[in-house]
Simulated assay, not measured.
Amino acid sequence: MQSLFITLGLLHLIALASPGPDFALILRTSLHRPTALGAAIGIALAILLHATFSLTGISLLIASHPWLFTLVRLVGALYLGWLGWGALRAAWQGGEADRLQAGGERGGLALGIRRGLATNLLNPKALLFFVGLLAAMVTPQVGSLTRGLLILELFLLSLAWFGLLAWCLSTPRAQRLLGRVQRPLNLVTGLLFGAVSLSILGGMAEQLI
């Protein structure tokens, strides 16, 4: 069990450190610390749900039913595309208000939690990652207590990583730096969200064809 916790934790940390929509959302909201911290909490809560669903078989049920999984992929692709469009629009306008707004709005902790939760939870690639990772490593012989502790481990690692990232990127020094590069930053994050959205939609189109 100890090796399972260590291996799963290391693999999860590697996945967390990889650039993706979650990292882009923290970057985009980092000019407003409450929103950035809220986004970190929301992402960690979404990972908690993904891990719970995966270990209880709900995510596998979704992935094994084509119409249900297609619906999840479509909603997720459209949401990520909407976030990408907002970032690209902010990059194009480049006004002072846009540089100070977190993800298009200065809504504070609650807005950050909602966006973090939606960004990760509606990302079908995250769903597939947890289904594949946990199905491969957590055998049926693993008891319910150990499964609960594994879920808690993934949640705490996610909260610690994204919380630390949000805190560090929202310091005054980091804000001054990010404020000077906000337009290209919005452009990069917009392109990243858009690329993920288009890749999901492209995969769906290939399946239909």
Rank of each mutant, 00 (worst) to 15 (best):
L4V: 11
L4K: 02
I6N: 00
G9A: 10
L16V: 11
A17R: 03
D22T: 08
L27A: 10
T29P: 00
H32V: 08
H32F: 12
A39V: 07
G42K: 13
A44C: 04
H50T: 07
G57Q: 08
I58V: 15
I58Q: 06
S59C: 07
L60M: 11
L60Y: 07
W67S: 14
L71D: 00
R73G: 09
G76N: 06
A77Q: 07
Y79W: 13
Y79P: 09
G81M: 03
W85E: 08
A87V: 02
L88A: 11
R89M: 04
A91C: 02
G94D: 08
Q101I: 01
R106V: 11
G108D: 04
L111M: 13
R115G: 04
N123A: 12
L128Y: 05
G132N: 11
L145I: 13
T146N: 01
G148E: 01
L152Y: 01
L157I: 14
S158L: 01
W161G: 01
W161D: 05
A166E: 05
A174E: 08
G179R: 11
R180A: 14
L187D: 02
T189H: 03
A195K: 04
V196M: 09
L198S: 08
L201G: 05
A205M: 11
Q207T: 10
L208Q: 08
L208M: 12
